[in-house]
């Protein structure tokens, strides 16, 4: 239940003033057209077979994660 002493306008102003809103605004500014081309990163991100992975290390270890286990 919301606090009846807090008006919706005051609550909105308070919410807008919160520092996390600036953080979220940066992400929300990414155009939908771009976001729609992106699937979320997996929780465990790395793949040693990434583009450009031409080093000796990458060549010696072309696969990680499920493929390598």
């Amino acid at each position: 239940m919301s606090d009846p002493s807090v008006t919706p306008a005051a609550a909105a102003a308070e919410a807008a003033a919160h520092p996390v809103d600036a953080v979220l605004a940066a992400i929300r500014a990414v155009p939908d057209t771009l976001l729609r081309s992106l699937e979320p990163a997996t929780l465990y991100v790395p793949s040693l077979a990434a583009p450009g992975g031409t080093s000796a290390v990458a060549a010696a270890a072309p696969a990680t994660g499920e493929a390598a286990r």
């Binding site: 979220l24 992400i27 929300r28 990414v30 771009l34 992106l38 979320p40 991100v45």
Partner: peptide
């Protein structure tokens, strides 16, 4: 927003 952050992480 969390999921969108993960999408931007992919980018």
């Amino acid at each position: 927003d969390f999921v969108d952050a993960q999408r931007v992480r992919r980018l």
